[in-house]
Amino acid sequence: MGTVIPLWLLLGCGDVLVDGDYPGEPLLTVTGQILVEATISEDVSPSVALFWTQAGSATRTETSVEVTTRFPAYFELNAYQPPVDADFFTDPQGLHLALGVLLLYDDTAQDGTLDVDTDTVIGAAADDAHVVWFPDPPEAQPDTPEDRYLVAHGVPECQGPPDTADEAPPTESQGIVDLLVADPCTLLPDWNCNGDLEEWGDLCGD
């Protein structure tokens, strides 16, 4: 007996077509939960942003995702654009890479973008979790992950730009990060190992 193809299957075949606000395929996905260690107002619209940064200076905000105010809250952040050339630097191991930190902020303008002038950072990743992004072409650098990124926990002392050659590589995770609602100045990595967070500029230290 032959195979009968339902007529409806012939109506519109092929790839799934997307709406015009399709952002592309995610290059990077970070998931996790938001834990509250400080009191926040019900008026707060918590959102998550990924910052590519060198030596703590905030360069750009990438994709942010709005989270609910149910705590503990879970989030998923997808980045659709890679870091730009200016975000990359060479670490003491000679790796050319970009570092990204996750920030929890109050999206006052409700525009999905962290504006340091109007929005308030209300938290950051625990355990100094950060994203390490490796540039293209991957064959130029050894041990580049297949997805070209990893989520590391813990920051070697004096990273950015570090001058020690024997620091241990960061601990990797499966892209799961805990974000803490707390003073970000207690959470942000001290990249330059000078004991303060002035390198974070408007976010902390000023």
Partner: peptide, 9 residues
């Protein structure tokens, strides 16, 4: 980023 082309009838 990455956004493959799509085609459908």
């Amino acid at each position: 980023g990455i956004a493959p082309a799509r085609e459908a009838t």
